[in-house]
């Protein structure tokens, strides 16, 4: 099956390790991701604070381009993109007046929106459409002994719960177990990372990230797994500041796709693992082999 791929701005910038690991993993799973032609910013959080209707126009342009290209489903790996694209779909279905404005705007680009392209997160596609059996078949180096805290973030389960439980999502837990990893109990799996506050108002933003990292260490995790570029950035990029303010909570935070790649036997360098501020220690299994 071929999917339309909406990378979003972060995956081309600070979150490029996500794309670097996601693409080879999907290739290994024999799923084709075709980058959406001339995609634009989804209209996320900060844009929505200025003009919500225009944010919906931004999102709709992407949805309409996917329709025009004849794609069946759109894959959005960033939680914020995933939410804004889905939120726009909700608005278009709920509010005829919003739809009228969006339709008029889309017409300017000879585009139309009918709503027949679902927006999905790669985690959902891998676990619910491809299936864990297919994942297991490709595991060459099980992540035996690696203790992982599964961190989902906010916008993947709120306000809409699309493919998982809103309070206790388990899709990534099951995926990590299929890779051979040990998933630690992590009750904060959907607590806010602070979003863009870490950059704008450090004190409250960093506190959110600090709490998440401290809890992961307390639960005995070796690494935190994320599914969103902003969560990864917040949990990975601010260790110096967090240490200066509270204490050292240096634990690596990686993308779930990077862990998949490692389990599939792909080289760490090709999965963008060198881009993290806190490097991940080599896998216990590999240490034994060496």
């Amino acid at each position: 099956m071929k999917y339309s791929y909406f990378p979003g701005c972060s995956l081309k910038g600070t979150g490029r390790a996500y794309e670097e690991s996601l693409l080879p993993v999907f290739r290994a799973m024999d799923i084709e991701l075709e980058e959406l032609e001339d995609w634009n910013c989804c209209g996320a959080t900060a844009y929505m604070a200025v003009d919500e209707v225009k944010a919906c126009v931004m999102a709709s342009r992407n949805l309409a381009i996917a329709e025009k290209a004849g794609h069946k489903e759109l894959v959005a790996p960033c939680n914020a993109c995933y939410l804004v694209l889905n939120k726009t779909k909700h608005y278009l279905h709920e509010s005829p007046s919003v739809k009228r404005v969006i339709d008029a705007a889309l017409k300017q680009g000879n585009l139309t929106y009918t709503g027949n392209v679902p927006v999905r997160h790669p985690l959902d596609v891998l676990v619910n459409s491809v299936g864990l059996d297919e994942v297991k078949k490709r595991v060459k180096q099980p992540l035996k002994g690696l203790k992982v805290a599964p961190y989902y973030g906010c916008q993947i389960v709120r306000p809409y719960s699309t493919f998982d439980d809103q309070y206790n999502p388990t899709t990534m837990d099951r995926l990590l177990e299929a890779l051979g990893a040990t998933v630690v109990t992590y009750p904060l799996k959907t607590r806010c990372c602070g979003g863009s506050l870490t950059g704008t108002l450090p004190e409250p933003g960093l506190l959110c990230s600090y709490i998440l990292l401290k809890e992961a260490i307390k639960r005995g995790a070796d690494v935190v797994a994320t599914i969103c570029p902003l969560c990864q950035f917040n949990l990975d990029g601010y260790h110096d500041k967090i240490e200066a303010k509270w204490e050292s909570v240096r634990i690596p935070t990686v993308y779930f796709s990077q862990l998949m790649g490692l389990a599939f036997g792909l080289p760490a360098q090709e999965l963008g693992l060198h881009r993290g501020f806190v490097p991940m220690k080599s896998l216990p299994a590999q240490t034994v082999a060496a």
Binding site: A17, D38, W39, A105, L106, Q108, G109, R275
Partner: peptide
């Protein structure tokens, strides 16, 4: 600096091809 060393820092402005199309759409609103 940390981002730069890890290849995560870029000051090259990203943009789409059909900027005028997007602009027309947003102005309509």
């Amino acid at each position: 600096l940390g981002l730069l060393l890890r290849g995560r820092f870029s000051l090259k402005m990203e943009s789409i091809k059909r900027k005028d199309e997007l602009n027309r759409m947003l102005t309509t609103v």
